[in-house]
């Protein structure tokens, strides 16, 4: 599965305040959820990807590489929602065909399509956030603008810093098991067994590492005062308000003009 990651660039989207981006995504997600039609999420999806490509200067291959496996996953979701749609709510359904115990009607297919496009629109929102937000700025903005207690803001940064170490850690544990002659099995049961064998040592190491880092931080008097100052300060400026207004107005306009079809 293609994981999302930060794409370094200096664009309008990259310079926005991370907390504002989070707020915009939150509002967009709520509006998209209240829109029952397939047009609103569909058009929003296209516009988001276009903005990411043109304004955010994120190359198309980066966008496609991380999204295509997720696009495939929406197909079964579409099928499930189409088959189990509550047709009792529709006054006069346009029935297409019957398939065993299921009835497929035009209304249920439209709802299934709307929900699948909603998933894709949400994925586009996530991709927009992750590719254009540096993790450090994100943590700083959580502390400075969203008023998350700074201990947790830094804890998030520490956790992010540890990500590459987990792969090393896993390799070490695998090697340790191999040296002791514990082989790896394939198939379902093997997967389950490996999960049990690796999960506890991995988590135990996570705990030990956390404790060591926390001791180091404590010894440097981290967290003694309730307030602190920052070398880098983030602000909410005019471009953030402009972005907020443009996105919400566009979304509401789409919903208003197309949502009733």
């Amino acid at each position: 599965m293609g994981l999302f990651s930060y794409y370094e660039e200096d664009s309008f989207l990259h310079r926005l305040n991370p907390s504002i981006k989070l707020l915009v995504i939150f509002l967009a997600v709520i509006i998209l959820t209240l829109a029952p039609d397939p047009y609103t999420p569909g058009l929003f999806l296209l516009l988001t990807l276009l903005a990411l490509w043109v304004v955010g200067r994120v190359p198309m291959r980066v966008i496609l590489r991380s999204t295509w496996p997720l696009v495939l996953l929406t197909i079964p979701f579409f099928i499930f929602n189409t088959l189990y749609f509550d047709l009792g709510k529709v006054v006069q359904p346009h029935i297409w065909f019957h398939l065993g115990p299921w009835t497929v009607a035009r209304e249920s297919a439209i709802v299934g399509l709307a929900l699948s496009l909603r998933i894709l629109a949400f994925i586009a929102c996530s991709l927009f956030f992750v590719t254009t937000t540096s993790p450090t700025d994100f943590a700083l903005s959580l502390i400075q603008q969203a008023h998350v207690p700074y201990r947790f803001g830094y804890a998030i940064l520490v956790a992010y810093r540890f990500i590459p170490l987990w792969t090393e850690e896993l390799a070490t544990i695998q090697a340790a098991h191999k040296v002791r002659g514990v082989g790896e099995h394939s198939g379902w049961r093997g997967m389950l067994q490996q999960f049990r064998r690796y999960a506890i040592p991995l988590l135990a190491n996570a705990i030990r590492k956390s404790e060591r880092v926390a001791i180091a931080m404590d010894s440097k008097a981290f967290g003694v005062t309730s307030q602190r100052t920052y070398y880098r300060e983030l602000h909410i400026c005019r471009r953030d308000y402009v972005f907020l207004a443009i996105t919400l107005l566009t979304l509401l306009a789409i919903f208003y003009f197309l949502g009733n079809y």
Binding site: A206, E211, D218, G223
Partner: peptide, 13 residues
């Protein structure tokens, strides 16, 4: 601090 760091690391895993 210790609890916050541990919570964040557990959450990440």
């Amino acid at each position: 601090t210790r609890d916050a760091i541990l919570a964040a690391n557990l959450a990440l895993v």
